[in-house]
Design a protein around this nucleic acid. Sequence first.
DNA 1: CCTACCGATCGGTAGG
DNA 2: CCTACCGATCGGTAGG
Lengths: 196, 196
Amino acid sequence: MIEAGARRREIDEVASELFHANGYAATSVRDIAKALDIQGASLYAHVASKEDVLFSIVNRAATDFEAAATAAEAERTSGDPVERLAALVEAHVDVVTSDPERASVFVTEWRHLSADRRAAVADRRDAYERRFRATIEEGMSVGAFRQTDPAIAATFILTALNGIAGWYHPDGRLSADRIADHYVDLALRALSEDHR
Amino acid sequence: MIEAGARRREIDEVASELFHANGYAATSVRDIAKALDIQGASLYAHVASKEDVLFSIVNRAATDFEAAATAAEAERTSGDPVERLAALVEAHVDVVTSDPERASVFVTEWRHLSADRRAAVADRRDAYERRFRATIEEGMSVGAFRQTDPAIAATFILTALNGIAGWYHPDGRLSADRIADHYVDLALRALSEDHR
DNA sequence: CCTACCGATCGGTAGG
DNA sequence: CCTACCGATCGGTAGG
């Protein structure tokens, strides 16, 4: 038998593409249904509301980012804060490039969630950003990174990484791996001791 | 007498705030009118369409970024590509922080423009990004920056800069000037020769 | 800048 | 998953 959640996942996938391309507010329930070749009202056999679809996409993305960061932090080399930051950056880029639509929706559309859900997502985002900041702070304290504002540095790096979701295409000039390499290098150098 | 365009500018200002806070598609003409204490239909005494308001905001932002970059490139010190990139980054941050709502709408809402207008804005954005890329390339060719992919480096830096529009508040922890200093430093180091 | 109004579309429900 | 339908709201126009 066909797995129960298959249609539900199809809805999220199709909706991710549409929300990414046109934005949540400019995408109608009927747009999503049309992409699935069903009637608009039929979508409500699978979901309770349009916002639930957005929430599902955003939650999945948040979970993916968290899991990837946890795996990165568990790597052998990650006792060294420099290597750990490299692993965190690489993991983030991997999540973005493996599903840029979902990542893009996560980054840009979460303001359309209800206040409660928005707050819950904000908490997870803050916690995630804190992992980057903590690693930057540790690198600074052991002298591997220069002294600078860790919050600004973390925000600088994370917004640059998230920007990839806005332009990445699997068939683009650079592979996901090469993009990750470049972004790791740029991020680490931004925190390096000397320049000029 | 009150200047003719005053009301028109007020519309753009109020609309910038609403588009920034809720997005273009989720902001109704009546929302804009309400913020101006007039009736929804009365807005059409001043503008031909909702999209024209967005286009006006986006154009103004594009012009501001271009003018600031031109001024930065005209600085005495800008014969040196490192100093020129520093000036470009600082100018960009200045434009963003002097009107974060407008900058944010420029960065995130231009996809809601008609195809023609979107293409015109895309051209201006591309040309603007090329100025950053050209300066990075020049810095690389004179050995002031390390050899790396200039397009990726320019995108990395510009998306980080644009991200400021999403979180900057005039009464925040750091002043606009200090944010600019940090971002100049982070951007230049990202392109620096050595690390580790 | 207002009142009055337009057709179209929105998210969602009822009942099968 | 469908047909039929709901009230609300949308961007925009007419005519002052």
